[in-house]
Amino acid sequence: MAIIVTFDFPGAGPDLYDTVIHRVTAGQGFTRFEDVSNPGLISHVAGPVDGGFRVTEVWESPEALESHAKTFAPILADLGYADAQPTITPAHNVVVN
């Protein structure tokens, strides 16, 4: 079952996002996030919201997200966001064009 995953980072901006993405891509020998292998990731979008920054993703399953979290969790912890917990919602429908 696909899931919708939303991370909110109060007080953060695009610099936090760019730093995380840079660490992930550089750590895997890439320069673009879309080149990194993210098995199970259906979509990823990020942008500013009132008072912070939001990342929303659609994953094929909770297990795919758990595997992916092993890459991002240590980076977020290092940047002071160890307690960042996503909101996870079952997807009723997913359309990819």
Results as ranks from 00 to 15, higher is better:
M1E: 10
A2S: 15
A2E: 12
F7W: 11
F9T: 00
P10N: 01
G13I: 02
L16E: 01
Y17E: 06
Y17Q: 05
D18H: 13
H22M: 12
H22W: 05
R23S: 03
V24I: 15
T25W: 05
Q28W: 05
Q28H: 11
Q28T: 14
Q28S: 08
T31A: 12
T31C: 01
R32L: 14
F33Y: 13
S37D: 10
S37G: 11
N38Q: 14
P39T: 10
G40D: 08
I42V: 14
H44D: 03
V45S: 11
A46C: 05
G47A: 12
G47P: 04
P48I: 05
V49F: 01
G51L: 00
G52C: 03
F53H: 03
R54D: 01
V55I: 13
T56W: 03
E57F: 07
W59T: 11
E60K: 11
E60I: 04
E63P: 00
A64P: 08
E66C: 01
E66W: 10
H68N: 15
K70S: 11
T71W: 06
F72M: 15
A73G: 00
A73W: 08
I75K: 10
A77D: 14
A77Y: 07
A77T: 11
A77H: 11
A77S: 14
D78Q: 15
L79W: 13
D83H: 08
T87H: 13
T87M: 09
T87I: 12
P90L: 08
P90T: 09
H92T: 15
N93K: 15
V94F: 08
V95A: 10
V96M: 09
N97C: 04
